[in-house]
Design a protein around this nucleic acid. Structure first.
Length: 812
RNA sequence: GCCCGGGUGGUGAAAUGGUAUACACGAGAGACUUAAAAUCUCUUGGGGGAAACUCCGUGCGGGUUCAAGUCCCGCCCCGGGCACCA
């Protein structure tokens, strides 16, 4: 018998599959039940596919193959998230146009995916940098624009000096640029935003970004991360009068119940009150200096030192509306300008930050909430929990919750405040001063102002003749041909918007395009949307928890609201593949020199081995370290399967082997259930148990061997195709039907009945599976071992768990 | 600090409240071989014992239960997310 030669076999079958697209292409016309299995489309980097891609893509490939064998009409596409900063940065370094490097990377990625045997429907391939694709990205921009959901606004935005562009908040987490890891600065710039905040709560018939999470099957951690990022908080806005003046300070608080403990107010450095009260502030120079210094700080610097600083606004005083007390006002950068009202009422006794500030500047600390157990540590720290009100006039003795309700009611009656909900989530900044992205389809006319490009004029093509070196100016502004156009409204000379869109805009809708990728009239036809969407299973890395996954949900909700689609959550079920660490336990990184390259592993062991090894390492979602030594286990397993052929005998000559039959059917059940639950590691171990058992027999029927091959097919497609052919079959194994187990056959006739004494196992007796309670107890007590254990003991009671055990409770 | 996960052999890991450690790696012993590799067989949680057998054992301390890796309470440690959001 020929040796198992993975290189030869894998090459052969990859060629065969290429020639037989009907084996894996989704069928738009089929009446069969659909399954849409989606991977997060990769950014085609020059480094090629890495081991982490292989993990997620293998999981979806197994599922896709499994559902096809189960008679489902499976849509399993792949494409390229091709725009973006890395390609452009690389282009800047090498002076090669990003379209060329990207195209090269795509060719390599695709080759590697085929090398892995992934069964993608390549007829639906999309590339976000193709004008056929970004035409629709621009169309979505216009849809948002026309509905008031895309707008231009001047304000403080994140600026990355190294990437020379603005960034969305989600891409500047922790004050660091998501791409280049340099600190982000704040700049005052006019930029384009998408109104994602309109969709936080339910919007008409469309579920909101918060409540929509309740109806989808996503990892709890991902849902929580999104909720935290949205950061909903309920509180109240309250107006504080300023003495001897008409202006008022509006503050936001979630703790109205602590208002009798408010001993000062604080406004953020950028608060307009300071400008408006310039003439009243006696120490304006000092205040102004403080503001200038505060503005200079990056978010990162602000975070590094949480030391509270601030300056009192001399000559300005506020009045607490509840007790008419006159209190000082400070400017301090621990209050954020963009959140709430940009001003707070400070209650040092019950807020950590106010406490710190009050201690530093020696301000009054007044206790107004006592804990239920009456303990007070106010000398050392703030008491921030809810409790019972004290020192609060007629509100004394109320609980915090009740007090909030009553105090807010009073504010609303007096019209000096109201209940308010605030969110941390801000609108999505989508414009970028970079070249390699989809141009924003807006034209500026001196007469008509901001004018959207007409739909019939889409796409606005990205010019190829532009110097893409970044300067902070949008590179597109350098192309006269691109910029100088006629106004679509009045026909007079006008200028195009020169910014491009954030790549996350492109990836917010790509899963819609796969259902109808060639459509020239619409982003996808209603019919195809209805047929395929939403996505049944989405697998990708956890790093997209608040970026792509939030944006994609937002887009879906917009399309739902305007009647383009009839679902408002794009991904019914989501799973993240856990990071595969390097052998040394660190992250794989070029700089550590510990990167495992799939090409090398495939060359040495084969794609089937790599696929199965990654699935066998542990649960899909767990973080797992790579261990080259372990690969040999899978190699041995596949070689065993290969060699089993030698044991085949014609079934007519075979005396049926009940033990193998039974185990085989138990394995069918186990593998089917495990695949559906994405528990590939235990599915593989079940296959190993089966093969180990078959090996112990010296003969194997063709039928049983074929069943084994079918079970293994989703995991090791190349090997099984070859063995299937060698058995004399003419058609691909993937035209077969997934085996069904015989529920009668897998039933056990006898079981090992566990006999416990006080919960500890003392004997095991083989009995009929349906043994009665009476009989079981009798057998248990008759056991010699048990008798010995029960000497000098009294049996108090006997527990019987049907089909499992007998537990004798005994004492002295 | 807050919010999620998670802690089981030498290692990756299994286990609807019911035999803890399946499967795999590694290690040890043996078979085959002049030898090695490969392959095959056996052993492999720890302690005690010649053995039969027995005691201990799922991060720590309590609890619920006939029975806890699994459920509850309080800690410790590790990983991840958010972080001056009032």
């Amino acid at each position: 018998m020929e040796k198992y030669n993975h290189q030869k076999i894998e090459e052969k079958w990859q060629k065969y599959w290429e020639e037989h697209p009907e084996l894996y292409c989704a069928d738009d016309k089929s009446e069969l039940e659909k399954q849409y299995i989606l991977d997060m489309f990769p950014y085609p980097s020059g480094n090629g596919l890495h081991i982490g891609h292989v993990e997620g893509y293998t999981a979806t490939d197994i599922i896709s193959r499994y559902w096809r064998l189960n008679g489902k009409n499976v849509l399993h596409p792949q494409g390229w998230d091709a725009f973006g900063l890395p390609a452009e940065n690389y282009a800047i370094k090498t002076k090669i146009h990003p379209s060329i490097t990207t195209q090269k990377a795509i060719v390599n990625f695709k080759k590697q995916m085929k090398m892995m045997g992934f069964s993608y429907d390549w007829s639906r391939e999309v590339n976000s940098s193709d004008s056929d694709y970004y035409k629709w990205t621009q169309w979505f921009f216009l849809l948002l624009y026309k509905n008031g959901l895309a707008y231009k606004k001047k304000g403080k935005v994140n600026w990355c000096e190294s990437c020379k562009t603005v960034l969305a908040n989600e891409q500047a987490e922790g004050g660091i640029c998501e791409r280049c890891k340099n600190p982000v600065e704040q700049k005052d710039l006019e930029q384009w935003f998408f109104k994602i905040t309109d969709f936080i709560e339910d919007n008409g018939q469309t579920s909101g970004l918060i409540s929509g999470l309740d109806k989808i099957d996503w990892p709890e951690s991902t849902k929580m991360a999104q909720k935290n990022w949205i950061g909903r908080s309920e509180g109240a806005e309250i107006e504080f009068k300023i003495t001897n003046y008409e202006l008022r300070i509006k503050v936001y608080t979630t703790r109205v119940d602590t208002i009798f403990g408010c001993t000062y107010c604080v406004v953020a450095p950028e608060h307009e009150l300071i400008k408006n009260l310039k003439f009243k502030i006696k120490n304006f120079d000092e205040v102004n200096n403080y503001i200038k210094e505060a503005k200079k700080k990056t978010d990162l610097q602000r975070m590094e030192s949480k030391e509270k600083t601030g300056v009192k606004l001399e000559g300005v005083e506020a009045v607490n509306p509840f007790n008419n007390e006159i209190i000082p006002v400070f400017v301090a950068d621990y209050v954020l300008g963009h959140y709430g009202t940009g001003a707070v009422m400070a209650v040092p006794a019950h807020d950590e930050r106010d406490f710190e500030f009050a201690k530093k500047y020696d301000l009054d600390i007044r206790e107004v909430i006592k804990s239920v157990d009456n303990k007070s540590f106010i000398e050392k720290e703030a008491f921030i929990n809810d409790g019972i009100l004290i020192n609060s006039d007629e509100y004394n003795d109320l609980t915090s919750a009740k007090a909030r309700e009553k105090l807010t009611q009073w504010l609303e009656e007096k019209k000096i405040g109201q209940k308010t909900t605030n969110y941390k989530l801000r609108d999505w900044l989508v414009s970028r001063q970079r070249y390699w992205g989809a141009p924003i389809p807006i034209i500026y006319c001196e007469k008509c102002g901001e004018v959207p490009v007409l739909e019939k004029d889409l796409p606005v093509e990205l010019p190829t003749d532009v110097d893409f070196m970044p300067t902070g100016e949008s590179p597109l502004a350098k192309s006269k041909k691109f910029q100088n156009v006629k106004c679509p409204k009045c026909g007079l000379p006008a200028k195009r918007e020169a910014d491009t869109m954030d790549t996350f805009v492109c990836s917010s809708w790509y899963y819609l395009r796969y259902v109808d990728p060639k459509n020239k009239e619409e982003f996808a036809s209603k019919e195809m949307i209805k047929k395929w969407l939403p996505v049944d299973l989405y697998v990708g890395g956890a790093e997209h928890t608040v970026l792509h996954l939030l944006y994609a949900r937002f887009f879906t909700k917009v399309l739902h609201k305007f009647g383009y689609i009839d679902f408002d959550e794009p991904f019914t079920k989501l799973r993240h593949q856990g990071t595969i660490l390097a052998e040394d336990g660190r992250k794989m990184s070029k700089s550590f020199g510990n990167v495992v390259n799939p090409d090398d592993v495939v060359k040495q062991y084969g794609a089937d081995v790599l696929r199965m090894f990654e699935m066998f390492m542990g649960p899909l979602e767990d973080i797992k370290p790579w261990n080259t030594k372990g690969i040999i286990g899978i190699v041995r397993f596949l070689e065993k399967v290969w060699k089993l052929k030698l044991r085949i005998i014609n079934y007519k000559l075979l005396i049926t082997n009940d033990k193998i039959e039974k185990l085989l059917h138990q394995t069918i059940k186990k593998v089917s259930e495990d695949i559906e639950a994405l528990k590939f590691n235990t599915a593989i171990s079940a296959l190993m148990v089966l093969v180990n058992e078959i090996e112990k027999q010296n003969q194997l029927s063709i039928t049983n061997y074929e069943l084994l091959l079918k079970l293994l097919a989703p995991f090791a497609p190349h090997l099984v195709e070859e063995l299937w052919l060698q058995l004399g079959n003419k058609e691909s194994i993937f035209k077969q039907v997934w085996p069904k187990y015989d529920s009668e056959l897998i039933k056990d006739e006898t079981i090992n009945l566990i006999i416990q004494i006080n919960g500890k196992m003392r004997d095991v007796i083989n009995v009929a599976v349906d043994i009665s309670e009476e009989e079981a107890k009798k057998i248990a007590l008759e056991s010699e071992k048990i008798k010995r254990w029960l000497e000098n003991k009294k049996v108090a009671k006997i527990i019987f768990a049907k089909g499992k055990l007998v537990n004798i409770v005994a004492n002295l």
